[in-house]
Amino acid sequence: MIKQKIWIAAAAFLMAMPALQAQKYFTREGKVSFFSSTPIEDIEAHNSKATSVVDAETGRTEFAVLIKAFQFEKALMQEHFNENYMESGTYPKATFKGQFSDWGSVDLAKDGTYPVEVKGDMTIHGVTNPVAANGTFTVKGGQVQAVSTFKIAVEDYGIAIPSVVRENIAKELEIRVDCNLQPLNR
């Protein structure tokens, strides 16, 4: 009877092992902003409800944002962005699925600053493109912060900008990502 219990405990322990290693970090309050800069005007929009998961073991990551949650300073721009350019009624989300390269040198359980590169597939406006970006993980006292700045070209995602405002909107947008990740305990 006791022997049996030991076996069960050992089996449970062994089953828990991979779960311990497969620690995931997670946020539902990630910040994603984009910036368009032209000589005529600067436009920016902010979203603070991105979700992101980083698998600390494998270095795989996923991101998702709701397009309609981007807030602009001007109501008219927000309207054009949603209705004419992003068609967010049809394509409500943008997603990114990728893999950090050289993940072996990153230990999210240990304080430090880790420069990383991520490569993966970005889907915006229903169009998927390969994307690579540089970023940094900063781990301090159990807090994991992930930041990245990269550029994407509007036309890569099949977004048509009418000629009247073509000079007002940059061909390449700068995207800034800033996430405070929490350990995910299931």
């Binding site: 539902r28 409800k49 991105a50 979700t51 998702a64 709701l66 409500p92």
Partner: peptide, 14 residues
């Protein structure tokens, strides 16, 4: 608020 859709949670803004 304004419903913006669902990621894992349903998100309303404003």
């Amino acid at each position: 608020g304004k419903c913006t859709g669902m990621l894992m949670d349903v998100v309303l803004v404003r």
